[in-house]
Write a protein that binds this DNA or RNA. Structure first.
Lengths: 187, 187
DNA sequence: CTCTCTTTTTGATTTATGTCAAAAGATTAT
DNA sequence: ATAATCTTTTGACATAAATCAAAAAGAGAG
C-alpha cells in the first residue's frame, strides 16, 4: 500500500487535503544496516515504511543488544521513545533490509496538526493503534513461557519471524537465542 | 489536582472551552472492590480518577489473576483494550480503594473531538503520554530479573507499591507473589 | 570456489524463579 | 471480642531457561 492510500485508510481526508498532506512527505531510500536514529539523538522525522523491515534496540549493561520494537512495511516508523516528546533517544533504530521510506519532519507534522483538525485526528487515531499493539505485546510478554511468546510472535508478526535474524527476535521476546533455537527445532 | 486543572495542565484551553469540557464530566463515587468494567463488556466511559487506586486484570488459564495495569489518582482511567476501539474488554477493571471519579461517555467525548480542534489535540497528547509510560514498562519487563523489575516499580510507582496488595503487584511485574515477598524481605 | 566471518545449533551445567504446602499475620464481618 | 477470611511469609523441591562452550551451517568477500 502506498502512503496516499495508507493515510486515507486511517482517516478519509478530502482529496485536496490528502494531496497536501501526502506531499509534505519526502521519499528516502537506505540500504540494509543503515542506522536511522542513533542513541542520544532526537528523532526528528516520522517515517512511512513502504517496503523493508527495521528495528529499535539498545545495548544492555552486559553489552547484549535488546530489540525493543520491529517496524513492518506499510506502517509508520518512529523513534518511539524520542519522536513524540522530542527527547534524546535511548534506542537506536536500524534497517534490517533495504527500505523505501517517506519522511516528514516533526515541525512540518505539527504545522499540519495546527492547520487541519482532521490531521490532528489522524495523529490521535494512529497513536491509539500503536498503543493497541503495545497492549497486546505487554500481555504476551508479561506472564507467558518462551514457547507461548514465540507462538504469539508467529501469529502476530509472521512476516518478521522469517525475515529478521534469530538473535534479534529472541531479544524482542525476552529470551536467549539458544532457547529460541531450541523452540524452533522441535517445530 | 482537580479535573479542571488537570485538563488545563495538558492543553491550555481558552477558559470558556475549558468550562464546557469540564462540565461534560459527571462525578461518580464507588467504594473499594467495585467492578468498573466487567470482562466482555465494552468500556463506555473515560474516567478521571481524582482520588483512589484501581487496576485492570484478567484470569489466565490456570485461574490466576494477572494485573495488566494500575491506575493512579490524578490521572485518567479507561479500559485500555476496550474504550478506544469500543470492543468488548478482555480485562476487568476494579477499584483497589474507595474512589472519586469524573466520567465522560465515549459519544460525548467524540462530540467534543468533533467540536474543538484543541480537544482532539488533547486526546492525541494524552494517548502519547500513556504510550510513553507503556514504552518504559515494556523495556522494564522485557529483559530484567525479578529484582530489577521491582526496583523499576519502586522508582516509577512508589505510591502504588505501598498501597496495592502484594499478589497484585507481583502479577503486574510478571513474577509470583512468593518471589516478590522474598525480594522484599531482603530489603 | 575457497576462506573468513557471522549466525545458528547442539550439549553440559547452573541458577533464578516457579510450584506446592503450610504457618503466620492482617483484615473484615458477626 | 472472636471467628472467619484473606494476605503475606517461609520452607522444600522442581523446572524452565540462562550461561558457557564448541561445533555446524550459512553468508559475504576476494
Amino acid at each position: 500500500m502506498n502512503l496516499h492510500n495508507f493515510l486515507n485508510s486511517i482517516i478519509p481526508f478530502p482529496p485536496e487535503q490528502l494531496q497536501i498532506i501526502r506531499n509534505a512527505f519526502e521519499k528516502e531510500t537506505f540500504s540494509k544496516g543503515h542506522r536511522l536514529i542513533n542513541v542520544g539523538e532526537t528523532c526528528k522525522k516520522l517515517y512511512y515504511l513502504e517496503t523493508g523491515l527495521a528495528r529499535s534496540y539498545y545495548s544492555n549493561d552486559k553489552g547484549k543488544e535488546i530489540t525493543v520494537w520491529f517496524f513492518n512495511d506499510n506502517n509508520f516508523l518512529v523513534g518511539m521513545d524520542s519522536f513524540f516528546n522530542q527527547q534524546p533517544s535511548i534506542y537506536a533504530t536500524e534497517l534490517l533490509e533495504d527500505c523505501t521510506l517517506y519522511a516528514i519532519s516533526y515541525e512540518k507534522l505539527h504545522d499540519l496538526f495546527d492547520q487541519y483538525h482532521l490531521m490532528e485526528r489522524f495523529g490521535r487515531v494512529l497513536i491509539t493503534q500503536i498503543m493497541g499493539a503495545m497492549v497486546d505485546r505487554l500481555s504476551a510478554i508479561q506472564f507467558q513461557t518462551a514457547q507461548e511468546r514465540y507462538d504469539f510472535m508467529l501469529k502476530t508478526y509472521p512476516k518478521i519471524v522469517y525475515r529478521a535474524p534469530l538473535g534479534t527476535i529472541a531479544s524482542y521476546l525476552g529470551i536467549t537465542q539458544e532457547t529460541l533455537s531450541r523452540i524452533r527445532s522441535k517445530h
